[in-house]
Simulated assay, not measured.
Amino acid sequence: MPGSPEMPAPVPDVLPEPLPVLAGIPGLFQAHAEDRLGAALMAHEMEPSMVEQVQAYAVRVAMEKHMGPGVAWMGVSLDGQRVGMRDTVGVMWDFAVGEAFSSSAHEHLNQAMVHAQGKAPAVPGVSKQSAGPAMQMASGGSAGGSSGAEGGAT
């Protein structure tokens, strides 16, 4: 009889959809997030689905901030409340872990891919053209060239 004390509750037939494995620079950030953040977040007694959300959000932030061309470091604060990351160029960003819970891990990865493909600006009000020289510098290219941008430290 369903609902009797000796019968366990039915198990849903639907398993959570696995997260996609991203390619290119987003994939590098995704692999690093899984490698570097997973154990640290689990040590703070975070559920596996929440760990996935934080890892996916780290990828999203990296793509929104145009970090790249690769990740040099990712880590979790001692209190487990913040995640910090640094790319191979030396650019650093951090975010509050709680920000990751605003959307699902799938949504974070989808948004990361949108930003990686250049379909949305990283900062509202900043055009892709003005972000171009910085992206060229981050990938090892020159900020000058045909764009007419002046090189130099900021």
Rank of each mutant, 00 (worst) to 15 (best):
K128C: 05
G145Q: 08
S49A: 12
M137G: 11
A120Y: 05
P16M: 00
P69A: 02
A149M: 11
Q117D: 10
H32A: 15
P8S: 07
Q81G: 13
E45A: 09
A143W: 00
E107K: 06
A149N: 13
S102E: 15
M42D: 10
E17Y: 01
G84S: 10
S77H: 02
S130V: 15
T88P: 04
A120S: 13
A72P: 07
A72K: 13
M85Y: 06
G80M: 02
D13P: 06
S103E: 06
A56R: 08
S102G: 15
P2V: 12
R86P: 07
H32W: 03
P69M: 02
M42N: 09
A96V: 11
D94Q: 10
G152A: 08
P48H: 00
A153K: 10
P8H: 05
L22W: 01
D13K: 02
A131Q: 10
V61E: 14
R60C: 15
V83L: 01
K128N: 12
S130H: 13
K119Y: 14
V97F: 03
Q129S: 13
S127V: 04
D13I: 00
A143P: 15
G140H: 04
A33T: 11
L37S: 06
G118D: 04
D87A: 01
P5M: 05
G140D: 09
E107A: 13
G80P: 05
A31T: 12
V126L: 14
V91S: 09
A116H: 11
G132T: 14
A153E: 14
A116W: 07
E99D: 15
M50L: 09
Y57P: 08
K65F: 05
D94F: 00
M46I: 05
M50I: 00
K119F: 14
E52I: 04
A31M: 08
Q111W: 09
G24Q: 02
M46V: 10
Q129W: 10
V59N: 11
D13Y: 00
S139V: 01
R36W: 13
Q117F: 04
